[in-house]
Design a protein around this nucleic acid. Structure first.
Lengths: 307, 307
DNA sequence: GCTGAGATATCTGAAAAACTGATAGGAGCC
DNA sequence: GGCTCCTATCAGTTTTTCAGATATCTCAGC
């Protein structure tokens, strides 16, 4: 299913020493054990990690990237082994989140946070972006989790966690699925279901406007489940983010996704807070929880590019 | 030696479901396998992760902390499985670092970075803090790695990565090692070796000054190896950070460490850069490399307290 | 107080995984 | 060509992991 920490250690040693045989000595195992582990690792990743030669093993580009991940993972593992004594955090955190976030992003994290810090009371409210900004500035809430791209108030600090690409949703066996490439012009000819919640319609205009095309709107709805059902039943198409995508609708019919030729802005989910406020320990822990799961996001831009 | 990803998965499932038996069903393994894995995990960690009862398993405080680590690790593992296509970074990074950092912190990371991004040329120079600040502002270097506690120029941004506590170094079989607790007053009676490099002497005064005591300085030297040898030979003691500590001196004699009663500021190593400059992709990758290894440092203050 | 349900702990033999050691094969160097 | 250094592969053994049976504990209901 997935790889092991053993695979990782053997891989790192081989990458650093450049030879399976030397890595095997370093690890105090036989050369064949290391060879086998690397072969398994490459199989589960589905990628070549090294180019083999009679001199040794040289990392491929994928191997280099995986090595960086490997360093991160073993660092976290070693960190986890150190039993620093800590105090259990106590207190309250007043959160607000927008419709999409509260339904499709937060649940698993709220669950985990309540397990990791059970003595912290999490109060969560659903708000529109505007209400959320006001509540932050009023001091009614501590932190918001929202779609960060539409936030431009300078009194509010934001930190993007997740960038979820938007794609075209189609019913299964739709003729457009046969095409090599798809563009907004193709979408404009189809009946379109426009989601109106969380400023989705406003965001949609950001990528429709420059094309001088417009979607042939069959229905405007605030329910993602409605979009899902209508698309699944073959009555329309829509462009929505991967975060809210599920392959099956409530009725059990399948939905397909396709990339579009035009660059569609991704849906960005992140934390927002009032720039002037001090961070309480609980707020810090909350932020740290997300940061450590999603990494420092601004730099992932530098390291990877979209497909 | 250490635990497995299997241990981690079994632990997380048990923590989330609150029962070994339910976790076993969820994981499609037998109850005894999960019980055994958790027992092994607790043994390798040397800590109780759960309190057992006939109702199920409740996390201890250590368990909650380990659960948070577990979430981080599996998140990194899953991230590593996604083979996002990337471009190899190319370019140059002009680094500067101070004596201590270049000798005791950077080497392994420069080695790893050159493996992860071989097409980036890393130019490293040793500089004093003042020269480093000037070079940053002049634009002669891109990023510095230095002891961040003495940097107070507002034009320079800093991000602390590592906080290494300072302790008393003693030769083995020194009488002070018998004591229950040690304070600076005890140290003041011993011959003291003062390291002069990287503003160490200046830093030392920060914690000697409030006591109205002063160290009985036998020797001032800019060589850490000299301090190590003199302490190991029983001719003096010193207070230095764990980062530069090694149990053996060059001659093979042992050095012991002891905590002091007074709070001694830790040695803080971090990145520094010119606040006005834009981050190049290479600079971003460099920063990201360290961030992901050392975590978001400011919040570790909130999550843990010193022993 | 007894009893059944449901929980974890422990044990044994079986199955699976990992490892060793030997061997094969390829590439460069003399 | 022959030597050396590398990785790949295979067969047999060792180690780890697992399932299933059983023991033990606790609570709830009677």
């Amino acid at each position: 299913m997935s790889y092991n920490l053993r695979h990782l250690r053997y891989f790192i040693a081989t990458a650093e020493l450049g030879q399976v045989s030397r890595a095997a000595i370093e690890l105090s195992v036989s050369q064949s054990a290391v060879t086998a582990a690397i072969r398994e690792l490459e199989a589960t990743l589905g990628t070549q990690l090294f180019t083999r030669s009679s001199h040794g093993m040289a990392l491929t580009e994928a191997g280099r990237r995986f090595l960086a991940s490997g360093y991160e993972i073993v660092a976290k593992v070693e960190e986890s082994l150190q039993a620093a004594d800590t105090v259990a955090l106590t207190g309250e955190l007043r959160l607000a989140a927008s419709y999409t976030v509260i339904g499709y992003f937060l649940p698993v994290h709220l669950d985990r946070l309540s397990r990791v810090m059970p003595e912290v009371t999490l109060r969560v409210r659903e708000m529109t972006r505007q209400a959320l900004e006001d509540a932050l500035l009023d001091g009614q809430i501590d932190i918001g989790v929202a779609l960060t791209s539409n936030i431009s108030n300078h009194a509010i600090a934001k930190e993007t966690l997740l960038s979820s690409p938007r794609r075209l949703w189609l019913p299964s066996r739709h003729p457009l699925l046969e095409r090599e490439t798809l563009g907004l012009a193709d979408v404009a000819r189809e009946p379109y279901v426009m989601l109106t919640v969380d400023e989705a319609a406003h965001t949609a205009m950001r990528y429709w406007a420059p094309t001088s095309l417009q979607p042939n709107v069959l229905l405007r709805t605030s329910s993602i489940e409605a979009v899902r059902s209508i698309v699944a039943n073959g009555q329309g198409v829509s462009i929505l983010s991967d975060m809210v995508y599920r392959p099956w609708s409530l009725e059990g019919r399948r939905i397909e996704v396709a990339d579009l030729r035009e660059p569609i802005p991704a849906m960005e989910v992140g934390l927002v807070w009032c720039r002037n406020n001090e961070f309480s320990p609980v707020m810090n822990a909350f932020r740290y929880y997300f940061r450590s799961l999603f990494g420092a996001p601004q730099s992932s831009v530098a390291l990877s590019r979209p497909a």
